[in-house]
Design a protein around this nucleic acid. Structure first.
Lengths: 340, 340
DNA sequence: CAAATCAGCCAAAGCGCTTTGGAAGACTCT
DNA sequence: AGAGTCTTCCAAAGCGCTTTGGCTGATTTG
């Protein structure tokens, strides 16, 4: 059932039927009702390919997926996706993943924009002065950044959590508990989120006249093994930290393992706080000692981004609005006063 | 730059240019070369929307993503995606994720097929007599199942690992080591993979005249917490198992935690084997006691599925070919003879 | 009352590609 | 030499929608 057939059986022109269905004003209410009725009754669904060719709109949002043999997709992605799906599902919005060589994403961005494959894109894990951002900005496709970049002379729309604030709070708490030697096991510090977190920690320390030890700030990809290694290295120093702030639950698993290997206990020997993106399959309250966390649901962020992208596509949202979500500090048994 | 312009500047018809570019035989080699050259030089890229409208082919593969408030996307998905991307990247194949209400995926399948949004789909986590499979089979769109279903009177193309064999081997090893009380902490047993795993374990036990205790086979969604709970329940029985086979590393984390809480040690009190899908961020060799695993890279499966889908789309693969990958049993320190 | 306005509809021209059904010319074959 | 056969190309008809530009008859306006 296509437009031609439908309009024919209504004895109307395709123009009128099309306009009736798309809510244009130049069609009488009665006609519109008739058309709508018939469309529903016959299960008419406009062919998206045709609509697309005519309008250039695809009804999909895009994401360029960095891939490569040495490239692992962030496990957070799946939770983000859950959120995105939660919103998109009810709006018949599909998501197009365009895999790209991690070292040459530009080609892919250009392709999907030139081909009008998607109406909007989102960008995640941005770095300072991220080229993708500059590119997408000049290409003129609607977009939203999940996270923030830095060092641009233009503004852009984003959704981020207050990473600096969160880690500032966490570190401040630890300092208040008397910790003088505080370490940060951070994610990849080429990414902005990690930079912000480090900034938060440093600021909290500085406020009490402390500076982190040279090697007490480390940056690694967020695996259990790296958490272990970092913790091990830190705790075997001559003056080990008495508190650690950690950028992910997965790394925290490794930290906990390292402590065990060294015969140290939480929180008497070491206080630990980690960031929790809220995975359903790994919860901080279920750590051997319940883990204090800075918590922010990445899934909710996914839903919000979908919502905002939809708004941008339909022109309801404009400009470079940035949105920063506060982060909860949830204190559990893994923190205590600094050891004697 | 579109076809019209290109053909005009070559003084050829659109027909000829189109045919030259698409490799049809009825154009001379010389002309083809001229056309190819000009196309490359001017960076001509056929407009996919137009091509799509004309041919009905989209150059994308689809996946219906079950979503909902109570629905969590499987964390394995991300690794699978990495693999899919590895292949798709080099073939300019995009992946369309269509989020759907987990309880009504049929509507979405019908929509993407009717709209010809994608050229092929894949289905994951199938259940016995899975309705999606029957649906997709009748809709006539090329597809591949990741995993297997059961109870159909038709064959279908799939890629699966030998779950039964893997768990049979694992259980057999434990039995050979003298374990009489063996428990299985399985994933959701409405899914075929879990059924196969259970079958493997039962078969190994039966071969030595053993049957698993009533409550020694449990089925739960694969979270750390569920692993903990199941292990705890099992080990607090009057006749606790001396060996556990576990369907995922994440659950195994919980098992290890439970053991610790109960003051038990691996492998002297309990032998443990888990299935490893090969996550970059959590490795069995890094468990407190290196974990024995049945190992199969889900990422490689993703790449293979992409490859086969592409082959199906282009007609290179036909029929209901099933492919079953063997699974490695990797023995590490977590298994030992049954305690005294 | 003629002129201007307006609501409501339509025919047709795109969008940019593929594909059908020839047609023209070159070549073979008897 | 004329009939048949290839080879190589083309014009035009789709694919199914949106949108431009106008037309008609009814209503308002000076």
């Amino acid at each position: 059932m296509n437009l031609k057939q439908l309009s024919h059986m209504l004895s109307l022109s395709q123009t009128t039927v099309s306009r009736a269905l798309n809510g244009y004003p130049e069609v009488s209410e009665e006609t519109r009702r008739r058309v709508m009725d018939a469309a529903k009754r016959h299960g008419y669904r406009p062919n998206p390919s045709a609509r697309r060719l005519a309008t250039g709109k695809s009804g999909m949002i895009g994401y360029v997926l960095p891939t490569g043999n040495a490239v692992d997709i962030d496990p957070h992605f799946v939770e983000f996706l859950s959120g995105l799906g939660d919103y998109a599902r009810s709006h018949e919005l599909d998501l197009v993943l365009s895999p790209a060589d991690a070292d040459d994403q530009e080609t892919t961005y250009r392709r999907i924009v030139a081909n009008r494959q998607v109406d909007a894109v989102y960008i995640s894990s941005p770095r300072p002065a991220d080229r993708r951002l500059a590119l997408v900005n000049t290409l003129g496709i609607p977009f939203i950044v999940h996270g923030r970049s830095e060092g641009f002379d233009f503004d852009y729309p984003y959704l981020d959590i207050d990473n600096e604030g969160a880690f500032h709070e966490a570190a401040r708490l630890l300092v208040q508990l008397g910790h003088k030697r505080l370490a940060l096991i951070n994610g990849d510090d080429r990414e902005t989120f990690a930079i912000h977190r480090e900034r938060g920690v440093r600021r909290a320390l500085a406020a009490s006249g402390l500076t982190p030890g040279e090697r007490h700030i480390c940056s690694l990809t967020m695996t259990e093994e790296n958490g272990y290694r970092a913790a091990r290295r830190l705790l075997e120093e001559s003056e080990p930290p008495t508190a650690i702030v950690c950028s992910s639950l997965i790394m925290a698993l490794g930290v906990v393992r390292a402590l065990r290997d060294l015969g140290l206990t939480i929180p008497s020997d070491l206080s630990l706080v980690a960031h929790d993106d809220v995975f359903p399959w790994l919860r901080p309250e279920n750590f051997p000692v319940p883990l204090s966390t800075t918590r922010s649901s990445i899934r909710l962020a996914g839903a919000r981004i979908a919502e905002r992208l939809a708004a941008r596509i339909s022109g309801l949202e404009e400009g470079a609005r940035g949105e920063v979500w506060p982060v909860d500090l949830v204190v559990r048994g893994s923190v205590a006063g600094a050891p004697g």
